[in-house]
């Protein structure tokens, strides 16, 4: 995290004994965190990782488990594009165990596009689109909300509480609420509102979840998560000393200038943390997809879930989990290097 002050070390130039003492203290203070994480996270993570190389079934300890090497990963990542002339047999053309995504024409030839797990490929696309759009929206709206409730006005206290409502309703429940609000007729609030304002005819009510599945989940997730972003940004805004603004005002800086030159740079560390955690959460999105959308529009995590609890393929589901881990880790590294974050 790029934080303006990195000067704590300045105080301790006193000598190596002091440094050693600090290092020892640091270890002691970190110990509880490591103890907890090793206790609760280490075993499950290792277990997930190891089982991803096997064909272990879910909830069946007596079944024989064989080591299958990278087979799970090959199936998850495998795609096939092959010439597929009219009249050719699908059975003979497609790699055994693969499934057709579609058939397409290119330069007058017909081709087959198949994948080991087309739903997984689709889930990756869904999740990344979802993440980019919803995180971008959450930050725009969240920053706006944070700036507003950081200003003095009557009723600010209530506003700050109201702002947190969406985050405070458990996701499992708020998504059920939204499922109803997104009904395909005017029993749903969205269609009722649109038709009350005369924007649509009741007979032309929008079937949100079937016509715009991704938009529906984004809508719900943005509503749900703006408070989280806003609260973090608000906390960040409050660490910015007010006299900086005063100095800015004296120098004749306009409001936008002050925002871009003072607020945003100083807010940057907080923005970054919020961004990292939101992206990680969005990439693992589960509840909203699971409750709002039918099986056919999956996120990476709901696919993982289905593989485990519907198909009972624990090994395969673990491989999915490991891939999700890798994808998320790549995003983290990308952020860190993109913003040249200095952690040390």
């Amino acid at each position: 995290m790029a934080v303006a002050t990195t000067s704590s070390n300045a105080a301790v130039r006193g000598g190596s004994t002091l440094t050693k003492r600090q290092a020892r203290l640091a270890m002691i203070m970190l110990a509880p965190t490591f103890f907890v994480l090793i206790l609760v996270a280490f075993y499950p993570l290792v277990r997930t990782f190891l089982s991803s190389f096997t064909n272990e079934p879910f909830a069946n300890p007596t079944a024989e488990v064989a080591n299958v090497g990278l087979e799970n990963y090959q199936k998850l990542l495998g795609i096939q594009i092959a010439p597929f002339p009219e009249g050719a047999s699908l059975r003979d053309t497609m790699i055994t165990g693969y499934r057709r995504v579609n058939t397409f024409e290119l330069f007058g030839e017909r081709y087959l596009f198949a994948a080991g797990d087309p739903m997984w490929i689709q889930a990756i696309v869904n999740t990344i689109l979802f993440t980019i759009i919803s995180v971008a929206l959450e930050f725009s709206i969240g920053l706006l909300v944070a700036l507003v409730v950081n200003t003095r006005f009557r009723g600010r206290g209530i506003m700050r509480a109201v702002m947190l409502i969406p985050w405070a309703i458990p996701t499992a429940i708020s998504t059920v609420l939204w499922r109803y609000m997104l009904n395909d007729n005017t029993t749903g609030a969205m269609n009722a509102l649109l038709s009350a304002f005369g924007l649509i005819e009741p007979s032309a009510s929008i079937a949100w979840r079937s016509q715009y599945p991704l938009l529906s989940v984004i809508l719900v997730d943005v509503w749900k998560t703006v408070p989280f972003v806003a609260l973090l940004l608000l906390a960040g805004l409050q660490t910015i000393p007010t006299d900086l603004y005063e100095a800015g005002a004296v120098d004749g800086a306009t409001v936008p200038q002050r925002f871009f030159r003072i607020t945003l740079p100083l807010l940057f560390p907080t923005v970054l943390i919020a961004l990292v955690f939101r992206t990680l959460d969005a990439l693992r999105v589960f509840d909203v997809f699971a409750i709002l959308l039918p099986n056919t529009t999956r996120s990476m995590a709901t696919h993982n879930y289905e593989m485990m609890v519907t198909s009972y393929q624990y090994g395969y589901a673990s491989a999915t989990g490991v891939l999700i881990f890798i994808i998320i880790f790549a995003f983290t590294i990308l952020y860190m290097s993109l913003f040249r974050v200095e952690v040390d």
């Binding site: 301790v12 440094t19 600090q22 609760v40 993570l45 277990r47 589960f286 485990m308």
Partner: peptide, 30 residues
């Protein structure tokens, strides 16, 4: 505090949250 390897420690701590809940669930259950 001043000591080496902070970056790695932070990453290790962060990486604990990178797995989807569902995939660590069976291990956690055990």
């Amino acid at each position: 505090l001043k000591f080496g390897g902070k970056r790695w420690i932070l990453y290790v701590i962060l990486s604990m949250t990178l797995f989807p809940q569902i995939s660590i669930l069976p291990g956690l259950f055990t």
